[in-house]
Amino acid sequence: MLNYITLIFSCQLAGELIVQFFGLPLPGPVVGVVLLFAFLVLNRRFGKASQKLDASGIPVELAKVGDALLSNLSLLFVPAGVGIMVHFSLLKNDWLPLSAAILGSTLLTVAVTAGLMVLLSKPNKSEVLSSGKEKPDE
């Protein structure tokens, strides 16, 4: 397990270095995603045959570490969110246009993006929200 924690940190570190070195307009962790993805592809093709892989070909222990991090992803935004308390004075001047812009633009973006995704992709019956559910969420 520790080796996979190290792997994830190393991907982030390498991502940060690549971003700095090439001056890319991306955060280091996003490049880290590409690196970890490349590891998964290469590991499945060239990795030891004796290693334990799950159904989709991901090392079991790595999947455990990753799922533990991602199942609590919301928590990780809390400290940055609390930072709002420092900046409320910045919002004071233009609070009405800014809140209207956030509200209108965010909902419009959701509608445009989802609408185009549905229009352009082939319908896939098995991957939809079940209509029998009392309250469609997400």
Binding site: Q12, G57, G66, L70
Partner: peptide, 18 residues
Amino acid sequence: VHFLLGPATVALAIPLYR
């Protein structure tokens, strides 16, 4: 807690791969 945001972002490669 804030620090773990970076490693968690990297871990998004896992659902993406699946």
